[in-house]
Design a protein around this nucleic acid. Structure first.
Lengths: 254, 254
DNA sequence: GTCTATAACCGGATAGAC
DNA sequence: GTCTATCCGGTTATAGAC
């Protein structure tokens, strides 16, 4: 391959320029927002030619995608100390959620753009896309640790336990959706929300272990599994084929 | 005012042109998608000048907003016969959800755009915006009828009962989010999803009436009420001030 | 392979005349 | 209310330099 003798290649020229462009872009996005920042602005401030920004980032949105990945790595790094320190499920989950909020706070003003493109099924940025599969897995892995490393006071049925990380991932997406729309100063509203909901989540898990709701839980888990398989692009089983006898009359009709 | 003597004003010139532009646009959107349709295409096919389309619709997105409102009306109309016919909560909810899906199916391919802009907090299209308040209220009103006109076999606590329409509205938003990302033929996946989840929703309501979970329900309802007030732009009460004694130890920590 | 410079294209949006 | 001309910014293309 190239430069077999170079001792510390670290960042070659190209990577440096790429990083420069990204940092400049994010700076401008933070300062004046996404729409108000033109590609020409970015090129000018970074002292590169307009064409060069396109050499490194195929489009303006790809700059966001790059930010997205960078943040994802920071998120993973920020999670470690929390997971090492906290032992209760509630504290672990709350810690992770707080860390996430803090990390993304500076970008709140252009988070809308992120979510706007993320909401488009055709966008590679959307959390359900094939391109996001890796990110989603990493993210879910964090929640696996949240659950797996927690000291639990009750026994959680295996099937529910296995699905918890995915459920928490969905929970997290909901919180981010709220955060994007949160206009309260410093996003206190979202902080209040996680404090309350983390608690509620913990209690829901407990309730989910009660025998009375067992059929409902089983059924819901089956539903979730089916649709997650869709997401992961595996052939999904036919839901209608397996009607659980448990289900037939659980007597829970209002 | 103008034309005080005209007998049947019906559609004046302006309204006609506006309607023509909208219908032409939607036709093109359906045929070739949103992005592939340019404002120039629309203007040309409708035989009006480009500038004229902007006279009636402030932006390309506003065409979607118009579609959004038109659909909303159709939705309300389609709901009536269902609510008149079905009596059980489950059947009423399922009927409404099915009607919604059928109505929006032809527009599935550009639904992504709808949701993309709808995800942007700055967009008037987003379901939480002030501009959407009226639509949201109408939509919630439908769910009020769903609940209010249902023959229930159990007694639902007043506070939960009052919040149900809003909860169902959120449920509906979740389903639409799924629908947008659903690539299965004829959206069977979403249809399966509503069939199963409507059932689950019904059972959850029943469970929510159990005394054991009462404190959790109360707390969750309070949380919801607070944040909904934010949405409606009312001053929100401070959540932390009122800690419910019921809550202190419900013994539901995992 | 990395980068510059420049011109051009395209389509959403606007201004201003009629 | 309707039109034409124009702007603006994302994006592409090209041609050439290190």
């Amino acid at each position: 391959m190239s430069s077999p003798k170079s001792e510390t290649p670290k960042l070659n020229k190209g990577q440096q320029t790429k990083a420069l462009i990204l940092e400049t872009a994010l700076e401008l996005f933070r300062e004046r927002g996404y729409e108000q920042t033109t590609m020409r602005d970015i090129a000018e401030k970074a002292n590169v030619a307009l064409g060069n920004t396109y050499y490194y980032f195929r489009s303006k949105e790809h700059l966001i995608q790059a930010f997205y990945h960078r943040t994802q790595e920071e998120l993973l790094a920020a999670s470690e100390p929390i997971l090492a320190k906290e032992r209760s499920l509630k504290a672990r989950l709350l810690g992770i959620m707080r860390a996430r909020l803090e990390l993304i706070e500076p970008y709140h003003q252009f988070a809308g753009v992120l979510f706007r493109t993320a909401g488009d099924p055709k966008s590679p940025l959307n959390p359900f896309s094939v391109e996001s599969l890796e990110t989603r897995k990493q993210s879910t892995a964090t929640f696996e640790q949240v659950v797996g490393g927690a000291r639990l006071r009750i026994a959680i049925p295996a099937d529910l336990y296995a699905e918890l990380p995915n459920l928490l991932w969905i929970y997290q997406m909901g919180i981010i959706l709220f955060w994007i729309h949160d206009t309260s100063p410093n996003r206190i509203r979202t902080h209040q929300l996680i404090e309350h909901t983390v608690d509620i989540v913990a209690k829901l898990i407990t309730i989910a272990t009660f025998p009375l709701v067992r059929p409902l839980i089983k059924r819901t888990l089956r539903l979730l599994a089916t649709f997650r398989q869709d997401l992961d692009n595996l052939p999904a089983p036919n839901l209608d084929e397996e009607i659980d006898k448990d289900e037939l009359d659980s007597g829970l009709e209002p």
